[in-house]
Design a protein around this nucleic acid. Structure first.
Length: 237
DNA sequence: GCGACAG
DNA sequence: ATCTTGTCGC
């Protein structure tokens, strides 16, 4: 069994899975009513040829969706991509970017699963637990679980079940476009998570927090303090 | 044993 | 995640 460097420690993939099982017990899957004033979106870029990637966190005012802050962390990624162990690969960079944030968000949306994970401890839960903030997992595809057909209209959703257990929902965020997969990250319930993802959608498949974080991680989101956002288009590389 | 498998 | 141009539709 191979071992990987993680925060200065050497862990085998088996140990990484044990760690997840242990941490999953601390995840909180409900909370009071959340009325976010600041919502954060988090994503990470794919590593370049030298293994360097960028983690981005974008802080947005709700419900205006104006950008308050953008923070980036850049570093070499060493942990490989292994389905189910994504958080060990991405969380270090994400947490590094979060440490730079001045405007603490009330809610965070992350590009990955929350508890819709084999050991109920996906990236969004991992980050939520480490930051002790409400997080929502909003992934573009399924890691585990199944669901019935989702209505074609924006807002339609279906339960995501794993061996009969409700672990999340498939949500159509845009009419006739592939659904996204929403799950509890930490300190929120599924109904609220679904509600906030829906309320953060602005005509794109991905909700604004995650969509802008993706652009920021790719270096395609320009933010001038106290001004408005400007997104580059698809041909100015 | 075989297939599936967040980014 | 990435490889990839133009094209169709709102």
């Amino acid at each position: 069994m191979r071992v990987y460097a993680l925060h200065g420690w050497e862990v085998s993939t088996a140990q990484a899975r044990e760690i997840q099982l242990s941490l999953a017990k601390r995840v909180v899957t409900e909370n009071g009513v959340i009325k976010p004033r600041l919502v954060a979106g988090i994503d990470i870029s794919a590593p370049d040829t030298q293994g360097v990637a960028r983690g981005a966190v974008v802080i947005l005012r709700y419900p205006e969706f104006s950008i308050v802050e953008v923070e980036i962390a850049e570093d070499k990624i060493d942990f490989p991509y292994i389905p189910g162990l994504l958080s060990f690969r991405e969380s270090p960079l994400i947490l590094a970017a979060c440490k730079k944030v001045c405007n603490a968000p009330d809610l965070i949306m992350i590009d990955g699963q929350g508890i819709a994970h084999p050991r109920r401890f996906g990236l969004a839960s991992h980050v939520g637990l480490f930051l002790d903030l409400p997080t929502i997992g909003c992934a573009k595809s399924i890691l585990c679980g199944r669901h019935q057909t989702v209505g074609e209209e924006a807002g339609s959703h279906a339960e995501l079940l794993d061996n009969g257990k409700l672990i999340g929902a498939a949500l159509r965020t845009k009419t006739r476009v592939k659904p996204v997969y929403v799950s509890v990250g930490h300190r929120i319930d599924l109904a609220s998570a679904l509600q906030w993802v829906i309320k953060c959608c602005r005509g794109y498949r991905l909700p604004e927090p995650t969509r802008l974080a993706h652009l920021a991680a790719a270096g395609r989101l320009v933010f001038e303090p106290d001004s408005h956002r400007s997104e580059f288009d698809h041909d100015d590389r």
